[in-house]
Every structure is written in C-alpha cells, then in structure tokens.
Amino acid sequence: MTAEKQLFKSAILEALSQKYEQELAECREDAKCSKEHYLRISEITGIPLARVMGKRRSLRRTFVAVLIAAALLLAGCTAYVYRNAIKDFFEEVYDTHIKVSYSGEQTDNELYIKEFYSLSYVPEGYQLVREVKNEVCVRYIWESKSGDTLVFQQSLINESDFFLDSDTEDMQCIEYNGVFVYLRSVDNLWIYLWNDGKYGMYIDSDQKLSDDELEKIIDGIVILE
C-alpha cells in the first residue's frame, strides 16, 4: 500500500472514531435492554445467557445485604476507627434496600483510574478468561475447570455505589492488616468489598474464599505497569 493510501486509511479511521466518540459523548441514552434482546444475543453469539447478562449479574450481586454499622458492631469494629483508617463508607437506609457508597469527595477529584490494579494471587485452579480495563472500571474474570468464577473489580471510589437488600443475614466485617472487608453471601455467591482510600475493590466468587486465600488476594494486589 502506498504511503498516501496508508494515510488515507488512517484518516478514515480517525474521522469515524472521532465522529462516534463525539456522538457517544453527546448521547444521554442508557444501555438498558430487554430480556428478549439478551436472549437473542445469546442465540446469535453462542454466549451463555448468564454471561450475556453479565451486567445484570453485576446489579444483582450488588443487591446484597450489608448494614455497615451493624456489621461493624458485630465484628467489633468501631465506626470511629474505620473512618479514621480509610475512606468512609456512607450508607443510606431505605425500606427495601440500603445504598452503600464510599463517602466523601476524593481529595484529588479523580475522574479516571490512573493506577490499574490486578491480582497476583488467585486460588489454585483458576485461569483468567476475560478482562476489561478502561479509565472508569477494571474487571477481571477467572474461571476454574469446574465452571466456578471469581471476579475482581476495581472502580473509582466516587463512582462506586452498591445497592443492597436490607436482609442482614450472613454478613461480616473482617479486618486484614488494617483493611476492613465486608463479606456477604447471597444465592451461593460470595461478595467482598473494600477500598484502599483511592479505589473501591470488589470480589465475587462462586466458592467461599478461605481467610488465607482472601488475605493472599488482598496482599497480592499489584499495580500494573
């Protein structure tokens, strides 16, 4: 291909990229879809419906019951110690659910993820099958041969709201080396939430992680080059 043709090819790509990015930036539409749409996507692509609806799974797993204050009290953590140690959690309690946020304004007003985390340790038998990495969300999915999944997600603290059922069964607050981890199980899915003051971390796992495994995961979080 001549140099002119190569340049023209680049120009077309750049033009359409800019055009679509501009349209997406102007766009106020959401990405909500009907269940029928997901079914059809699953048929077209061969992706299992549960994975096509992965985003909905994400919503479902955030409907997990954790009463922060109660969890703190049950685990012997005090709110005073927690708030002083790391970013505050803030909860708004409603009749049907609880909204949990990493509260307060970030001091440096982060709009984008600048340090991308990953796990250097995952339990034995898991292999990385998928990753999504962009400026507002990092997500890795590992899968074992038996089909169990483990999901790790890093997000901006000021963009991380979790909507939880108000059922408070099976919730715990665990501390590892000054990190407070909220643990909850629902429908055979184990969910772990914590933050390091900069980013919110989230894990869900089909198998309950042992204390040792959870500690290794937290200690093994690395910043990617």
Binding site: Y20, E23, L24, E26, C27, E29, D30, A31, C33, I41, T45, G46, I47, R51, V52, G54, K55, V129, R130, V132
Partner: peptide, 22 residues
C-alpha cells in the same frame, strides 16, 4: 467464541447507546 464474547462485553453498551442516540 471467546473473541465474540470479548467484543460483546467491551462494546455492547456503546453499540446500544449509539443506536438509541441515532
């Protein structure tokens, strides 16, 4: 199949939003 799934996960939201916008 893995590639299709990867593309779906990465771009589906933008595809839907752009379609709705247009």
């Amino acid at each position: 199949s893995e590639l299709v799934e990867k593309l779906y996960i990465e771009y589906h939201e933008d595809m839907i939003r752009l379609a709705k916008y247009k």
